[in-house]
Design a protein around this nucleic acid. Structure first.
Lengths: 125, 125
DNA sequence: CGTATTATTGCAACATAATCGCAATAAAAT
DNA sequence: ATTTTATTGCGATTATGTTGCAATAATACG
């Protein structure tokens, strides 16, 4: 299952790279110059997640958002970070705040999905 | 908009009270003795959330889960706690772990939705 | 009690997010 | 140039959650 380079893949990746915010499928579709099918966008995004190029956030609205986060090298300690969802401008961004927790004995954590919701700096002025 | 006592409301509340886990709408529907319409269950749950009887968790699967958590008095410091979603037994439980974060200047947090995913104690044996 | 008010319910329809099967296309290997 | 197969588009499908509306029933009030 070797990956192939396609215009679709490059377009989505480049959009995510240049975006400061996490984007949902419909946001990606809207912001792209070229028309790409919905199912294809999801498939491309899912592949990116498999390859750890992109990470997926599920917000309180139940929707998936996708982000490339260059800052967050997967060091053991700062593996997960918080996300912030602004209800005013309806965006999600990665915060440079590590998720800290002490898990009870016997539990094994494979992933963390932590989203704070409220009003962001830009909107609270 | 005064609330009324109904068998439906009592059934759902009693189920949530006796459950150690957070339940989704379909889990509630399955576990109830009496047959209650899907839309009604959602409406009852949404009312409980409005009245702060129940809290809502959105998991990585995009689904809503509902829990009564007696331990978690809404003290200022321990306002939010982590949740744990076990992929093996497909349940969500409240952890007694407070969510700690230092939010950047200008941000206002209204809610936190933090779910750790992995394998729970029961399933890791 | 009996009646009026209106919160609640069930049903069907709707909206949206995300996935899947399948045939057509096109990237990469030979 | 040809073969292989990853990728794409389309349509259909699944699932979650909400909404409009008429019927029901809990509560208040005479």
């Amino acid at each position: 299952m070797n990956r192939r380079n396609t215009p679709t893949k490059e377009a989505v990746l480049s959009l995510l790279s240049s975006s400061k915010k996490a984007l949902s499928q419909d946001a990606i579709e809207r912001q792209l110059d070229i028309k790409i099918n919905r199912a294809t966008i999801y498939r491309v995004l899912n592949r990116f997640c498999e390859d750890d190029l992109v990470h997926r956030i599920v917000a309180e609205d139940g929707k998936q958002y996708f982000a490339i986060c260059k800052k967050c090298e997967p060091s053991e300690k700062t593996k997960y970070h918080f996300h912030f969802r602004c209800l005013s401008c309806d965006t999600i961004e990665c915060l440079k705040i590590p998720v800290q927790y002490s898990i009870p004995e016997g539990y094994e954590v494979q992933n963390a999905n932590c989203v704070l919701t409220g009003t962001c700096n830009d909107c609270s002025l």
